[in-house]
């Protein structure tokens, strides 16, 4: 069966290693992923902050094109895009009048029957069965699974995992040989889209997340969202400044961790694109840089 892939703008740009690792893992498990043709941006935070109809129309165009191309199931690795697509589908499908109006704006027929999977659901449905037998080098590290906001909330609409102390990523990580830790910031917010407009806020929020994970012994942070990744990885300097520490704990997409465990090369998984190098063991330095 062909599965559609909605990469979204991040995976096509600044977070290309996420797409590279999703594709590399799919290939290793003989899964055919097809990019949704001529896909557009989901509108992200900007659209729903400024205009409701726009925030529905952009995702519905994507889903309508998937339908047109006979893609009944699509995987959306970016947690933020997954949230926008799922929430829009839920809202539009639940209101016939709205559905017709938005389909009219988009200018395409839309029935609303595409199944949307986040990256963990994709792994659960298509990879998990065969995962254990393919492990070559177990990912034998203490891992803090960081779910962030949009994979698990709002639960009423997404109906995925549980909103407090979720476990699905932890279960996958156990299967590849990791030791997932208990920690307090699994679903706290990293500062998300404030990365450019209020970098200081991101430094604070992401700093608290990193600090708790590291204090509890995490050797790697595992994520499933390009915003979480760039805030914890690319903004590490801001985080270290706000903490007065030099934390070198790497941040990996879950597909990169799986990829390493099944023997895919670091380069194919895009590890060289990270700001914080993926090197074990991690040597963190406490209280080096003193700012403010």
């Amino acid at each position: 069966m062909k599965i559609g892939l909605y990469p979204g703008c991040s995976l096509n740009g600044g977070s290309r290693e996420y797409k590279e690792s999703v594709n590399a893992v799919a290939k290793a498990f003989d899964i055919e992923l097809t990019d949704i043709p001529d896909w557009n941006c989901c509108g992200a935070t900007a659209a729903h902050n400024l205009n409701h109809d726009l925030s529905l129309s952009l995702p519905i165009r994507i889903l309508a094109i998937a339908e047109q191309n006979g893609l009944h199931e699509i995987v959306v690795p970016c947690a933020a895009c997954y949230s926008r697509l799922t929430i829009s589908q839920h809202e539009v499908n639940g209101d016939e009048e709205l559905k017709n109006r938005i389909a009219g704006i988009v200018g395409l027929p839309y029935t609303g029957n595409v199944k949307i999977l986040n990256v963990i659901q994709f792994i659960q449905d298509h990879i998990l069965d065969k995962l254990s037998e393919k492990i070559k080098t177990p990912f034998a590290h203490k891992a803090a699974c960081y779910y962030g906001c949009l994979l698990v909330r709002p639960h009423g609409i997404l109906k995925f995992d549980r909103p407090e102390d979720p476990q699905t990523m932890d279960e996958v990580m156990k299967l590849i040989g990791a030791d997932p830790i208990d920690w307090a910031f699994k679903t706290e917010c990293c500062g998300a889209g404030m990365s450019v407009a209020r970098t200081d806020v991101v430094g604070n929020l992401s700093g608290r997340i990193m600090e708790d994970a590291v204090d509890r012994g995490a050797e790697a942070i595992i994520v499933a969202c390009p915003m979480c990744h760039s805030n914890l990885d690319m903004r590490r300097q801001d985080i270290n400044k706000s903490l007065g520490k030099d934390i070198k704990t790497p941040v990996l997409y879950i597909t990169q961790a799986i990829g390493l465990a099944v023997g895919i090369s670091p380069k194919e998984l895009g590890l060289q694109r990270h700001f914080v190098p993926v090197i074990f063991p991690v040597e963190n330095v406490q209280n080096t840089i003193k700012v403010n």
């Binding site: 740009g13 290309r16 205009n51 726009l54 129309s57 952009l58 704006i105 700001f275």
Partner: peptide
């Protein structure tokens, strides 16, 4: 520059083929 070194910035913006559809969506909403 660090993003460029890591292949994280595109210099030529990607464009979708059906640009008219975007224009229409914006015209009918925001």
């Amino acid at each position: 520059p660090k993003m460029i070194a890591r292949g994280k910035l595109h210099f030529i913006p990607e464009r979708i083929k059906n640009k008219l559809s975007m224009k229409n969506i914006f015209k009918k909403t925001i």
